[in-house]
Nucleic acid binder design. Structure first.
Lengths: 201, 201
DNA sequence: GTCTATATTTTGATAGAC
DNA sequence: GTCTATCAAAATATAGAC
């Protein structure tokens, strides 16, 4: 609640708040929101009993909302940086794919939360994915690619779905262990497959 | 429990059991398993109170397990037919894509259940997707395609992920309303995009 | 075989002592 | 500010009357 925590990188300082968030993230990613009780979270955060959680968060839903906000804010910032450092849509998309593969290796629980958790089932008031700042930026990158001629003449939404359909499915395969090598192993070929789907030839 | 119901096509006879299953399917597809109470199911199935549900199913989980079994059995049969009617992997995959698009239009709740519901969160004892008969057949089709040279030399699992990454993401877009035209509108281009990902050129 | 009533359990949440 | 005790609510599940 207080300050935004650094979920992507392990933060050096750990407050009780951030320990609760990180415990919740791990449990939500592994078992899902509804299979995770406050008792589970307290235990994982090395807190004696659930009462203490209420000193930091008004209820369980707020914990999830905070995670959702933090993760999407971080994602949005990262995409901003990628956008600034690269000019062409192809480079920006490549940078985004690199980011997602890196996160899959370094912060698998964040990626599980992003890819596997159905937010709308317990955060009915949050915006859907297509209205998040992070998504809108990606969408605009694809639009720009179509305009500039780098990407073929396709409905940008369909382009987004094809491109991230491949990327996300691959990451989910890695996270689930169905693809059993390191994420990095699949990066180049998956980028090529996804980009090839939308590139103008 | 008693007899397998016809979920894909609206069945002519409707027993109380099948009405409960269909009500549960709709609710699970719309709100998720944990947001659906037996009270909700009873109401939707036009049953006065929850007690009567226990005349037909031992508990809520068993309702979900029955749906899971019925849907995958049906899917498996359909894929069998496609497999018998077509020789080449390309034709068999095309038939499968046709099937999934048809289901998305004719039985959207079945497809929502298949694509959006995370079974392992409430059916921990069910086999994971990769061990279902339906999946194994698709996997073998892709393997055969690689062997015959129709499909490029790719890990069949990765081929599966690329191909159905595109197909499933598109179907999810249609089901969520993000793609707002009829499923059929997207069929050809999505098939081409997915097939193009794995075809040998 | 359908409905009333109730038991049971879990878990989210609060109050208050120390 | 940490722990004990407890409440409240919701939902699953059962028993038994009619």
């Amino acid at each position: 609640m207080d300050q935004e925590i650094e979920i992507f990188n392990a933060s050096t300082i750990t407050t009780t708040s951030s320990e609760i968030l990180i415990a919740a993230l791990k449990l939500f990613a592994k078992k899902g929101y509804f299979n995770t009780s406050l008792t589970d979270i307290a235990k994982k955060a090395n807190i004696k009993n659930t009462s203490e959680i209420y000193q930091h968060f008004t209820n369980k839903q707020v914990i999830a909302a905070q995670l959702y906000a933090d993760i999407f804010a971080n994602l949005n910032e990262s995409i901003d940086e990628i956008w600034l450092k690269n000019d062409k849509p192809s480079e920006q998309l490549r940078g985004t794919v690199d980011l997602l593969f890196r996160l899959t290796e370094d912060a698998p629980d964040v990626m599980r939360f992003l890819l596997n958790v159905k937010f709308d089932e317990f955060l009915p008031d949050e915006k859907p994915l297509q209205e998040t700042a992070a998504f809108c930026k990606i969408y605009k990158i694809i639009q720009a690619g179509v305009t500039s001629g780098e990407i073929r003449n396709i409905d940008p939404m369909l382009g987004y779905i094809y491109f991230f359909g491949i990327v996300n499915a691959t990451l989910q395969g890695i996270l689930a262990g169905v693809l059993d090598k390191k994420a990095d192993t699949y990066l180049l070929q998956t980028w090529l497959a996804a980009w090839n789907c939308i590139v103008k030839k």
